[in-house]
Design a protein around this nucleic acid. Structure first.
Length: 207
DNA sequence: TCGCAGATTGCCT
DNA sequence: GGCAATCTGCGAA
């Protein structure tokens, strides 16, 4: 059972975070995004989850980033200013959802949303995932996309609603974060750019 | 609980 | 043609 969050407002009252929130470096944004709420509205069906694990990519020189080596059609969204969704397809069957970071157009950077804690619309997530186990519902970037029905169609959209946006949630409350090495990459392994919320009962298995 | 193999498309060299 | 910011099922311990 996920623990309860009594301090979280009703989902219908959630509003998108200001664009300026995203106008920082990828690493800074990766830390800021932990504890915020990801909201998805699919034809009136509301899904809400609390982000608990992220990874930073990009900056000026990061060999693990899709933007390393220059701009292509695939990674073009990463070169925009902050606050856009960068969704890519990988391993022939999975989508991954990123939040573009940065103030200036032309400087690539993004934060991969790796895991979240389901709060509202759990039944819809279970249907989308074809799984009922709560612990496995959003415990990975591709799982999260499947549960939230995020596909190529969401690539490049602005994260200020209404179908997909991020809300402050418990942001501002002090959180205990752990920085570790990033998962599933070949280059740039030295960087501790994976951010995980510590002492989270729901996701402690991921550490 | 842990580790490994297989799935399967498209991007980039 | 190689390989990827992954997940799942299965078998072993």
């Amino acid at each position: 059972m996920p623990r309860r969050h009594n301090n979280i407002p009703h989902p219908r009252s959630l509003i998108p975070i200001n664009k300026s929130f995203y106008e920082v470096t990828p690493l800074q944004l990766a830390k800021k995004l932990v504890g915020t709420l990801l909201i998805r509205d699919i034809d009136g069906e509301l899904l809400v989850a609390r982000i608990i694990e992220t990874e930073a990519y990009g900056g000026s020189k990061d060999p693990a980033s899709h933007a390393y080596g220059g701009k292509t059609e695939r990674n073009a969204v990463m070169f925009r200013s902050g606050g856009y969704a960068y969704v890519y397809f990988t391993y022939g069957m999975h989508f991954c959802f990123n939040v573009v970071a940065g103030r200036k157009e032309g400087e690539p950077g993004a934060v991969l949303i790796r895991a979240a804690e389901p709060l509202y619309g759990i039944d819809v997530m279970q249907i989308n995932r074809k799984k009922t186990n709560l612990r496995d519902l959003l415990s990975g970037p591709a799982k999260l996309c499947e549960a939230f029905a995020i596909t190529r169609d969401q690539n490049g959209i602005s994260l200020d609603g209404p179908s997909l946006f991020i809300s402050p949630g418990t942001a501002g409350t002090p959180l205990k974060l752990t920085a570790t090495k990033r998962i599933g990459i070949k280059n740039g392994r030295d960087k501790l750019w994976r951010i995980v919320e510590k002492n989270n009962n729901y996701v402690s298995v991921l550490l």
